[in-house]
């Protein structure tokens, strides 16, 4: 090809390149099937009595239990065969402690959503699902006699609290 012929083809080539660079690619997105469970708990381990009592005390009193108290409380749990009975009894004894720090009923009633979120975070170390949040808020709103103590007690004796 001689030089004049090449020069004549240059505009044609430039137009072709310009048109090619404007071609728009189209993407299609899909969603994989996922089995939805309330919470992924498959790796959970049970707490030892020491862990359970230590965390419970910290959750309720917002300070650590002394080592001496922890040993004694653990012995008491060990001395009762049915651990559900043992834990429920010890927790209800804790609830009689004047040093326990509970949210006020007013704050729970004024902002149940925050209360529910904070309670899940405090006891289960996670955020509630929408369904859990809705159910708990409805329950609190429809049961005017329920107090923060009742809610805390229910969370403390729930199976999920026994696992981490």
């Amino acid at each position: 090809m001689n030089m004049p012929t090449f020069k004549r083809l240059i505009p044609v080539l430039l137009v072709g390149l310009a048109m090619g660079s404007c071609t728009e690619e189209k993407y299609t997105y899909g969603v994989n099937d996922v089995i939805v469970q309330p919470t992924d708990l498959s790796g959970k381990k049970s707490k030892t009595p020491e862990q359970y009592l230590n965390i419970l005390y910290a959750n309720l009193n917002q300070r650590a239990m002394s080592a001496n108290q922890l040993v004694k409380a653990t012995d008491v749990i060990t001395s009762i065969g049915d651990k559900q009975v043992a834990y429920e009894t010890v927790i209800s004894k804790f609830m009689n402690d004047p040093d326990i720090i509970l949210p006020s009923e007013e704050s729970m009633r004024n902002d149940p959503e925050s209360f529910v979120k904070e309670t899940y975070q405090r006891f289960f170390v996670r955020v509630p699902t929408e369904a859990e949040k809705t159910w708990m808020i409805n329950f609190i709103n429809s049961n005017p006699d329920v107090t923060p103590e009742h809610v805390y007690y229910a969370f403390a004796i729930a199976n999920e609290y026994y696992f981490y």
Binding site: Q69, K72, A73, D75, V76, S79, T89, V90, S92, K93, M95, N96
Partner: peptide
């Protein structure tokens, strides 16, 4: 120990 952690439970 029981007196400290059980007696008088609510």
């Amino acid at each position: 120990k029981g007196v400290e952690f059980l007696k008088g439970f609510k």
